[in-house]
Design a protein around this nucleic acid. Sequence first.
DNA 1: TAGTGGTCTAGACCACTTT
DNA 2: AAGTGGTCTAGACCACTAG
Lengths: 230, 230
Amino acid sequence: MKKYEEIALDLQKKINKKEFTMKLPTEDQLIHTYQVSRNTIRNAINSLVKIGIVYPIQGSGMFIRPPKKENAICLNGTRGITVDSPSKEISTQVLELKIINADEKLSQSFHCDIGTPIYYIERLRFRDNQPFAIEYTYYNKDIIPYIGREIAEKSIYRYIKEDLKLTFGFSDKYLKVIKLNERDSSLLQLENGDPGLEIEDHVYLNNGQIFNISHIRYNYKLGYFYVSSI
Amino acid sequence: MKKYEEIALDLQKKINKKEFTMKLPTEDQLIHTYQVSRNTIRNAINSLVKIGIVYPIQGSGMFIRPPKKENAICLNGTRGITVDSPSKEISTQVLELKIINADEKLSQSFHCDIGTPIYYIERLRFRDNQPFAIEYTYYNKDIIPYIGREIAEKSIYRYIKEDLKLTFGFSDKYLKVIKLNERDSSLLQLENGDPGLEIEDHVYLNNGQIFNISHIRYNYKLGYFYVSSI
DNA sequence: TAGTGGTCTAGACCACTTT
DNA sequence: AAGTGGTCTAGACCACTAG
């Protein structure tokens, strides 16, 4: 692991253990503690600023931000639901898993040729046994060569990162409120016509390839979301 | 203005004018063009990465991301609606503007004493003459000493930045889907019980002071939102 | 192998806050 | 005046991509 990553992780641990009150140590102190250059310290701190856990005040210090509200799903970052709800039990029911060929619309979205094989997956996701969200997901099979039910029932993202050793780059998320159709509302155990939040997510690898497009419709009674901005 | 800010602005202009295709020039080329150090170039590029308009591929270059969908309101950043809809006409009707004293709940949210004077403002906002969102907003009067109707009818954010010369730092946004009450739905020209997206926004200055808390309820037919993640 | 971005070091001076 | 983060320079070596 890189020096600045290790330092960032270590600082994060110490923040969680409340070893610092209010502020981080000064840059000079951290330089001395970790025996690295100032640039490396600033790089480490910067990654904490990015994820919204500290903020800088010039001339005064790096201040620790109050912890976020529980159970709010963080929309910054390209992680799945699982990591956002550590205290909740997430389970998944796979409704559909098949390989289709990209039509014109999909081929445009994926920047691929028409006919490219694409995994199409529908999953119903539960949080503490309550139906939480329904996912309609596409994966480019040229990039993710295999997804089986045994994987889709767990975490597809974990599989892609840890088993396929691919690295996520960035994502674009588009949000809107919709009225659920009959099927979705019944799956989410809601009334027909009840609202839902639909998030359309375009996820890219760190080489700029788009590998995943998903439409997720959240149960409006359970979905609570968080965005940290700078 | 700082060197890296000027370079970032210049690059952004050139991207918009399509002077670059696919990639930015290499760091070495930019060092030569702008006659600054590599660190300054990287700092400039970094600010473009942050706002999601380029992405890096190590060993290959800095690639330009495709433009975002039109009319999507960007939730990254602490800007108002106005800047997100340059081609749309935004107008505002002030429904309420008064000074109240912080009760216990408000004093906790604002980290201020009970009784601190707080501006309370209700505004109905229109986009191209369609009722677009209703805002319930609080401003700490100790930080924003004056807000009049003439300001609230325009852009309060512009006033704070340009007239008061305050600098925004960061914000926390919490999102959920609600069913609108009778008053809100009628103001937004929707049916009673129709859904809305509620965004609770906590906005901080660059010195870490929280000066604004708002609850904005968007017309579900018009609200379309965007989050760029890394 | 050459090109390009990523990490790291060492040091100078500036801007802002605190005492 | 002292402390602390922000900007900027100069240079070295590493990691990854592409021809």
